[in-house]
Simulated assay, not measured.
Amino acid sequence: MIRTNIDIRRSKERFQTEIPWLESRHSFSFGHHYDPKNTHHGLLLVNNDDIVRPGTGFQTHPHQDMEIVTWVLDGELEHKDTLGNAGIIYPGLAQRMSAGRGIWHSEMNPSGDREVHFVQMWVLPDTEAIDPSYEQLDINRELDRGGLVPIASGRGHQAAIRIGQKGAVLWGGRLKPGESVRLPEAPYLHLFVPKGAVTLEGAGRLEKGDAVRLTAAGTPAVTADLASGAEILIWEMNPQSAP
């Protein structure tokens, strides 16, 4: 039986990467940042909050056997990969790359004077060594209606990109000041606040960059700050067996 737990992780507690072209905050172990007690939550292995300087970015590099979702908050991010996909990712455009047996891609800031701020998230796939694939979908209209909207889903939600993991759904919300939503019920939830601030029922106030790892915690309410509102990202995860 899964024990109920609400584990708050403050922004300042995250691993940090600071180099001339990149400011990155890592919610879990990543690269040379390693803590054996902080490698994942449920199916979620990576939650990187990245700011990339103008005209720079991640040069062509490989991935394998991972479902990768990129969510831009401000600015634009240019994607190119070895499948021939190329385009600009902007706020409200959900993007998914299934690395499968192997794919190479680059992620660059095409602007000459504006930073790009985005969150990149990795979840484990259902099946390894599949054909790599790519998908993107503009869901701004759905987000503007309020509430929670499925961004990426392994369960066939409408208005969501597809991921190869039946046990995971990524929900997003652009909450207006004072707007409240309830978290979905699942064995594992990961709530991240990339913009604004919220109050989580039973846990208190969460500022920009804060996260909460919930385990069998029911459906607590999240309420956006009365002044700033908030943007939130929620992974709902029902793994058969967490790693």
Rank of each mutant, 00 (worst) to 15 (best):
F30S: 01
P194N: 10
Y90V: 15
E115C: 13
L214D: 10
L137Y: 03
Y34I: 02
P150V: 10
P62G: 03
Y134S: 15
P36Q: 02
D50P: 05
D131R: 13
P36C: 01
N140W: 00
L214Q: 08
I103G: 03
R3H: 06
E236V: 04
W71N: 03
R162E: 13
E201I: 07
Q165F: 03
V169A: 00
E236W: 04
W21N: 11
T82R: 06
Q240K: 14
G55H: 09
F28V: 01
Y90A: 14
L143E: 07
I234T: 01
T4A: 13
H26K: 09
H33L: 09
A230W: 05
I139V: 15
A242G: 09
K208I: 08
D131K: 14
S111F: 10
M108P: 11
E107L: 14
Y134P: 14
G204P: 10
R174A: 06
E135F: 14
L189V: 11
T60C: 10
I6Q: 06
V169Q: 01
N109M: 13
A152W: 06
P20M: 13
S180H: 09
T4H: 05
V72F: 08
S98Q: 03
I139A: 05
E115L: 12
F28R: 02
T199V: 07
S106Q: 13
G202F: 00
I2N: 05
I8M: 02
G87F: 01
P36H: 00
N140D: 06
G146F: 08
P184A: 04
H63I: 02
K37H: 12
L200N: 05
I130W: 04
F15S: 12
G112N: 11
H63Q: 02
E23T: 15
H63E: 03
T60N: 14
R96W: 12
V198G: 12
T199Y: 00
I139E: 03
F58Q: 11
P194T: 10
P150D: 10
L22W: 08
E135L: 14
N5Q: 12
T60R: 15
R145I: 03
G204I: 05
A211I: 06
W171K: 00
W235R: 08
E185D: 15
A159E: 13
H79M: 09
Q16H: 13
A221N: 05
W104I: 11
E67T: 03
G202Q: 00
A160P: 11
L148Y: 06
I232L: 02
H105I: 14
G172D: 02
K195N: 13
Y188V: 09
G57E: 11
A94D: 12
A99D: 04
V52E: 09
L137P: 08
Y34L: 07
F30D: 01
H63Y: 02
